[in-house]
């Protein structure tokens, strides 16, 4: 089933196009990697999908029942203050505010759901700990848990492994793989070739004034794909 589709849309800021005539679609169960150099349109694409900026031309269509504000978004880490006092549970619970209707506090169901997600992501032991005292990997998992509170269908991850050590990176990728095999659709912006190579089934590549969208195998036969492989030291394939 198709979750998100864009046909010949143009995206950009303040009337200035960054990517023109973009056509893409995300099916339920997909693992889409979004790659490309800095400034080529990845962030613009993310913001457009989230509805933070409108497309300059055309529109992004969402499947029945998927609301734009219930995409499980994992933002780039840099935008969160390092010294913010907050427990893991407080952060995870805040993910459900998009559907929150109660006047005071969270409902019993919301709390139960948060607890379930906390266990599922392996944060059970540190649920009451302070976010600022966690390791980079634990912090990312906390934010991932928060995005799962917002949705059970589609995660949009913006460079989730930036700043993580190799082990934490591998653990996070494994976790994302598990979520995907549980039926959650993944869209991931990344600089790292490994998820694109190992886990993804589709690739959206942005380069200045051009893009590629298609299956992974097809991508790694294109000039852009081969160049990416070479830069990452995987050109022996």
């Amino acid at each position: 089933m198709q979750l998100i589709e864009g046909k010949n849309i143009t995206i950009g800021y303040d009337g200035e196009a960054v990517v023109s005539d973009l056509t893409f679609s995300v099916e339920s169960g997909d693992y889409l990697c979004i790659v490309g150099e800095n400034g080529s349109g990845k962030s613009t694409f993310v913001k457009t999908v989230l509805g933070l900026i409108p497309p300059l031309k055309g529109e992004i269509v969402f499947a029945d029942g998927l609301r734009q504000d219930s995409i499980g978004y994992l933002p780039q880490k840099s935008q969160i203050q390092k010294d913010f006092p907050s427990s893991v549970r407080e952060i995870v619970l805040s993910g459900c505010l998009n559907r929150h209707r109660r006047l005071f506090g969270y409902s019993k169901e919301e709390k139960a759901k948060a607890q379930m997600i906390i266990e599922r992501i392996g944060l059970g032991k540190i649920a009451s700990s302070s976010f600022q005292e966690l390791s980079g990997g634990q912090q990312q998992r906390t934010l991932l848990a928060r995005s799962l509170m917002a949705t059970e269908r589609l995660l949009l991850l913006d460079e989730p492994v930036t700043g993580l050590d190799p082990q934490a990176t591998a653990e996070l990728y494994a976790l994302i793989r598990t979520l995907q095999s549980d039926g959650i659709t993944i869209m991931m912006v990344t600089h790292d070739i490994h998820p694109a190579l190992n886990d993804a089934n589709k690739v959206l590549h942005f380069s200045h004034n051009a893009y590629f969208f298609g299956d992974k195998d097809e991508y790694f036969r294109t000039e852009q794909g081969l160049k990416f492989l070479k830069e990452a030291g995987h050109d022996h394939r």
Binding site: G51, Y73, Q79, S86, I91, S94, N98, R146
Partner: peptide, 9 residues
């Protein structure tokens, strides 16, 4: 805590 996430949701 995270205005970008809040706006996105």
């Amino acid at each position: 805590f995270d205005p970008v996430f809040a706006k996105a949701t």
